[in-house]
Every structure is written in C-alpha cells, then in structure tokens.
Design a protein around this nucleic acid. Structure first.
Lengths: 194, 194
DNA sequence: GTCTATACGTGGATAGAC
DNA sequence: GTCTATCCACGTATAGAC
C-alpha cells in the first residue's frame, strides 16, 4: 500500500523466470538467447539484467528453487515403508503435474551449470534421492521389500519417474490420478512388492 | 592397396564423429562449436565440412546410426515372453556399455534435430519401443505378466534403462554383468513377475 | 585434404537517455 | 524500470591457396 513508485519488479521478475523456464525446457539452455527470453516477456534484452546478474545465474535460480520446492513438499513421514513409498511416488507425480518444465530442466540442464552451481544443485538432488533410498532401506530392513541393491533401485525408480516428463502433457489421454495409480504399482514392482 | 593418394577421409571421418559424440554428450549440441570439434580432432574448423554438410546433419547422422545399430542388435526372438524380456534388458545394457555417449545423445538431443530429422529418428526410436511393448503385450496375453498398461510400462522401463547412462561409467564400482543382473530383476518387477 | 582468411550473423552484457 | 544503441567475442559456413 505504501509504495507509489511504478515498480514492475514483482511482476516482471516472475514473468522472466517463467519465460526462461518455458524456453529452456523447449530448446535447451544453450540454444535460448537472452533476447529470446526478453521477447517472450515483452521487454528488451537489457531489461533482463535488472532481474538476474547473468544468464548462468538465471538457470541456477530456476533449478535451485525447483529442487527446494520439491524437497519442501516431500516431507519425511513416520508411517510404514510401503505406505511411504506409495506416497513418495504419488507426491512426485502429482507435484510435478504443473511443473513439467521445471522437472525437465532440472534433469536435463545439469551440465550447463557452472561447477559451483552444479555442486549446489547436486546436493539438493542427492538429498531427494536419499529420501527415497531411506524408504527402500527401511523396507528392506523390516522385510517388506525384496530388493537386491537399494541404491540402484533408487536410481532406477527416479529415472522411471523422471521419464514421465518426456511424454506426459496436460490434457493427454490419461488423467494424472490414473497415471499415478499405475506408477505406484510399477514402482512397487521394482522393489519386489506385488 | 591400389590407392596412392594421401586421403585421410577414412581416418578423419570417424574421428570427427567420435569427437562430436564425446563433446555433445558432455556439453550438449548447442553448446559445442564446430571449432571445438575440429580442435578435438586436431584439424581446423573448415576441414570438418569435408565430412558433413553442416552441424545439424552431423547430429542427425550420429543419432540415426546409433538407433539403427540398436535396432539391428535387438533382433526379434521366438522364445517365451519372460525370456524375451530378460534378454531385451540384458541386451540393452550390454549393448550400451561402450556406447554411453551415443545413448545419452540420442536421448537428450532430440529437440535439437530439425523437424524432418526428428521425425526420422523418432520413427526408429518408436520401433525400438514397440519391440519392447510387443513382448509385454505377449506376456500379458498369455498370463505370464501382470501389468495394467503395457504402453506405460514400456515407457517406464525404457526410462529406467536410459537412466543408466546418467550414472554408469566404465570402471565404476559395479561390473556391468552385475548391473544387468540387478536390472533384469527390477524390470521383471515392473511387469509383475517376481 | 587441410590450411588460412574471412564474410556475416548472433550471442551476452553494458552505458546512458528517458 | 525500460529503452536504444553499442561493444566485442564467438558462432557457422565458405573461398581459395597449397
């Protein structure tokens, strides 16, 4: 209420990030120019530098904030391993439904991060992986799951879920709930529960 | 024996493709310059255009030849569905062991193909997918497999196998045979066989 | 068959007017 | 806060000498 200055920062900023995410998901980071992002937003290229110090930082911020959101919603639980596993699967899929671009970018553009930024994002990514691995370890320990190598199973499941972004689109043939139901079963299978 | 001209085409050509594959896998197509590829080979940039009409065609040739090799080795079989499924998994993994870069590129750089080239590669990719889907359909039909949606299961399995390229490296902690053994079991699980 | 040189476009990023 | 104008590095691709 107090501010009178015609600042659009709180409008343009999000628009910049949204446009960048959309374009990078479609064409890849290296193939998207700052000019293209600016055009998508409806401003000139120079104006972008009010919202990011440079292109690299823009990519990093997109990936970091996505990974932080992902971790925040996948809170640890106290229920039985199988229940936690199912919920992990469902949460992953439902959370991602309106974030296909962010997931895709976070998966595909790791190699375009600077070494320092890569290390930071990788830490978050690994934390998410560890959360799943902990569930599998617990299920193996108490005999619910029948799995040889929890670490490999974790990677396999994450890859399977990440693969969703390569074909799932809103308004496709399958409802997201239905997809989640099917994947819960597929995931259960990988850790030997039918 | 007959040729006397100092032609290096049959040496440099493969070197160009190998260098391009390595660099594109590491940095992404758009981020790799023709100059960088030339430097990796040990020639000047202009010399590359003896071996490819342009950069786009170079990418396409890499992806097409990989997909063709993949299809050629994954010949159809006449055994029981479960046996065929296991073999599909094993062949995929073993075939890919020395082709990590090609798999990675074929999976990640689809969006950098021109529309016409994309359509061609997509046809090959889908043929490979269909081969797996046919196995799953057969297993579902004869009651060996317990799976809800063969198409989704196919995609999930392909994504799981493709995910291997994001972490498997020669000389890693696990022997490839061991990885294949574990994955055969993971894949069996997804289609309800334990 | 490879080189050097270069045409020509486009990239990221900055300066300064409004 | 956004614009226009611009710097300069680097990209693809080609021409012509060797």
């Amino acid at each position: 209420m107090a501010r009178k200055t015609g600042s659009h920062a709180n409008i343009t900023g999000p628009k910049v990030r949204a446009a960048a995410l959309r374009l990078i998901a479609a064409k890849g980071f290296a193939a998207v120019s700052m000019r293209a992002i600016a055009a998508e937003v409806g401003v000139q290229a120079g104006a972008l530098y009010r919202y990011t110090p440079d292109k690299q930082t823009l990519l990093f911020d997109l990936m970091r904030s996505h990974m932080e959101d992902l971790l925040a919603q996948a809170a640890a639980q106290d229920s039985a391993p199988l229940e936690r596993l199912d919920q992990f699967t469902r949460q992953h899929i439902l959370f991602h439904s309106d974030k296909v671009d962010a997931v895709f970018v976070s998966y595909m553009e790791l190699r375009n991060l600077s070494p320092e930024n890569f290390a930071r994002v990788e830490t978050l990514r690994r934390a998410y992986e560890d959360r799943l691995c902990a569930i599998i370890d617990a299920g193996k320990a108490d005999g619910t799951f029948d799995v040889d190598d929890p670490k490999l199973a974790t990677r396999a499941i994450i890859a399977m879920l990440a693969g969703l972004t390569t074909w799932y689109r809103d308004g496709g043939a399958l409802e997201l709930d239905e997809v989640a139901r099917i994947y819960v079963r597929l995931v259960r299978g990988t850790i030997g529960v039918i």
